[in-house]
Amino acid sequence: MSDIATAFGLALGLIFGLDAELIDIVGRSLMVSLSAVALASLIGLPLGAAMAVYRFPGRRAAIVLLNAMMGLPPVFIGLIVYLMLSRSGPLGVLGLLFTPGAMIIAQTLLITPIVAALARQIVRDLYDEYREQLCSLGARPAQMLRTLLWDSRTALMTAVMAGFGRAMAEVGAVFIVGGNIAYATRVMTTAIALETAKGNLALALALGFILVLIALGVNAVASIISGTTRHRGL
């Protein structure tokens, strides 16, 4: 019991003492996840909105596939990206394997379906409400798309926040393509797994505390946004 108490005390000391290794890992985690969320949002938000507005052959199957991709195992995504970026892979010439760039690619592939699926549902609900008005104004599908994305921008932030939360908690894919290299590709989740296995509970707990605080912050912001959206009737 005393060992656990000591580990907790050391963990707090690392946090409040702004330990260099701790700051390095947290900073890289945020950089990778925020970059992946930005890319996933650029792809997923228009894609989800388009699937909500446009009618095309195979649309229902595409929606089912998109929803199914939300549950893709991270290790499978990591394996696919690893094969693509390995020396014998089609993108091996880029030299991205075991770099933060590879981790960003893996996380982007992992969270884009989440952002797109949530965006599709949000835009679809708004489209059902605005459809008659938009049609009466003679709006084309592309114009409808821009209008719906803009009017639902607050609600769409919840989709982006969900993607960010998923990215920050991910371990399998980034471990495979990043390699968990100290001061190069080590992020919070992979560092927690490694340090726990090594018995370095202080650093693992410190990273765990920060990860939980980030998760709570993300959920709090998402709840505030969701409450604001309901208040405005969006």
Rank of each mutant, 00 (worst) to 15 (best):
S2Y: 10
S2F: 13
A5S: 04
L10K: 15
A11T: 02
I15F: 10
I15S: 08
F16C: 03
L18F: 15
L22H: 07
L22W: 09
V26H: 08
V26I: 14
M31P: 04
L34N: 03
A36R: 11
I43S: 09
L45Y: 09
P46Y: 11
V53N: 05
V53H: 08
Y54S: 03
R55S: 15
G58V: 04
G58D: 06
M69R: 07
V75S: 15
V81Q: 05
L83H: 02
R87Q: 13
P90E: 02
I104A: 00
I105D: 01
I105W: 01
L109C: 14
L110E: 02
A117N: 14
A119M: 04
R120P: 07
Y127N: 12
D128L: 08
E129L: 07
R131E: 15
C135P: 00
P141I: 08
A142S: 14
R146G: 13
W150T: 10
T154C: 05
M157N: 03
F164H: 07
R166P: 06
E170R: 08
V171W: 01
G172F: 06
A173Y: 02
V174Y: 12
A182S: 14
T189R: 02
T189Y: 01
A193M: 12
L194T: 13
E195V: 03
E195C: 01
K198E: 14
L201G: 00
A202R: 05
G208L: 01
G208E: 03
L211K: 00
L213N: 01
A220K: 06
A220S: 09
H231L: 13
G233A: 08
L234F: 09
